[in-house]
Simulated scan of single mutants.
Amino acid sequence: MTDYHNIIDQFRADMAAAGMVVKEPIVADSVLHRVYVDGDKSGTQNGAYILHANQHPAGYFEHFPQGLKVTWRLDGAGDKPLSLAMRRQIEEERKRRQVERKERQNETAEKARWIWQNAKPVFDEAKHPYLRRKSVKAYGLRTSRGALVVPFFDDTRQLVNLQFIDVDGNKRFMAGGRKKGCFSLIGEPAGAERVLICEGWATGASLHEALGALVMVAGDAGNLEPVAIAARRWHPNAEIIVAGDNDESGVGQTAAKKAALAVRGKYLIPEQTGADWNDVIAAGGSL
């Protein structure tokens, strides 16, 4: 039989190799444990594991922020599945996490609406360095503590999150808030025959000013496809164009193509590597 400590060491090593470093003691008692994962915000317990160390050492570990979910068996332990009790614990933990996430999202949405109501409208774009640098209008943005405040809505058009853009262009969303499938709007949704989808707010402002079309700002490349799907539900007959970024990594281009394909739309990518459509339009170019 494999030594108990060897089982613990192998389990911890495999967790770390998957990107989940746990420094606290690992307990092999076939019970689900919530743990702090190295690199997460202090005080959180965003990791979970179960470890069974009897005749057939097996377990499970999960890191919620990464979306990491791994069913584990000791090398050479065979293919014996996890016990029914362990599988039930995993399912119960997933349900508990869903409830916790929903509660955090609701709390964040309430806070976002309060901040938005108390933020100040932008009346003079020239007074904010970011808007001046990007050569775009405010289109309804507000400011709070010197940062631009960008509202993000879910597909029921309820405000659920905010993005803050400081004077240097650094961006952050509210922690715990919804983002997937959520968007900021520039333009009038009613009767839109063409919808453009892009990553950044300044890019969206430039696109709207150049074309006069409705723009849905996704916030990042990973959210382009969920927002495109929401756009298609809202506007089943509209032309949908995903205006992607030309990233050196290729991430923006790939995400734009995937989003366009998902909704039978089109995609446009700037010719210059490293450029987005705000760069192109601000320099006098066109789509």
Results as ranks from 00 to 15, higher is better:
1 M>S: 10
5 H>D: 07
5 H>Y: 12
7 I>Q: 01
7 I>A: 02
7 I>R: 00
8 I>V: 12
9 D>G: 00
11 F>M: 03
13 A>G: 02
17 A>V: 01
20 M>E: 03
21 V>P: 00
26 I>C: 02
26 I>P: 00
28 A>I: 06
28 A>L: 09
34 R>W: 06
35 V>T: 04
35 V>H: 00
38 D>Q: 10
41 K>P: 01
47 G>K: 03
47 G>I: 04
48 A>L: 04
48 A>D: 05
49 Y>Q: 02
50 I>C: 02
51 L>D: 01
58 A>I: 03
62 E>G: 02
66 Q>M: 11
66 Q>L: 10
72 W>S: 01
73 R>N: 06
74 L>M: 10
76 G>L: 09
78 G>A: 11
78 G>F: 14
78 G>L: 14
81 P>S: 07
81 P>W: 14
85 A>E: 11
87 R>Q: 08
89 Q>M: 06
89 Q>I: 06
90 I>F: 08
95 K>I: 09
97 R>Y: 13
99 V>E: 13
101 R>V: 07
104 R>F: 08
105 Q>M: 06
107 E>K: 07
110 E>W: 09
115 I>M: 07
118 N>V: 01
123 F>S: 05
126 A>R: 07
128 H>P: 02
130 Y>Q: 10
134 K>A: 06
134 K>R: 12
137 K>N: 11
139 Y>A: 08
139 Y>H: 14
140 G>T: 10
140 G>K: 07
145 R>H: 08
148 L>F: 06
152 F>E: 02
154 D>F: 04
156 T>D: 13
162 L>P: 00
163 Q>A: 02
163 Q>M: 04
166 D>N: 08
168 D>G: 04
169 G>S: 07
170 N>G: 06
171 K>Y: 04
185 L>Q: 11
186 I>Q: 02
187 G>C: 13
195 V>N: 03
196 L>E: 11
196 L>Y: 14
201 W>M: 02
208 H>L: 05
212 G>R: 15
215 V>E: 03
220 D>Q: 08
221 A>V: 07
222 G>D: 12
225 E>G: 05
226 P>S: 12
227 V>A: 08
228 A>N: 10
228 A>V: 09
231 A>R: 03
234 W>S: 07
238 A>H: 10
238 A>D: 04
239 E>T: 13
240 I>L: 15
241 I>V: 14
242 V>T: 13
246 N>F: 03
248 E>L: 14
251 V>C: 11
260 A>D: 14
263 V>R: 04
265 G>C: 09
265 G>S: 09
266 K>S: 14
268 L>G: 05
271 E>W: 15
272 Q>V: 15
273 T>W: 15
274 G>A: 15
275 A>I: 12
277 W>D: 04
279 D>W: 15
279 D>P: 11
280 V>N: 04
281 I>V: 15
287 L>C: 10
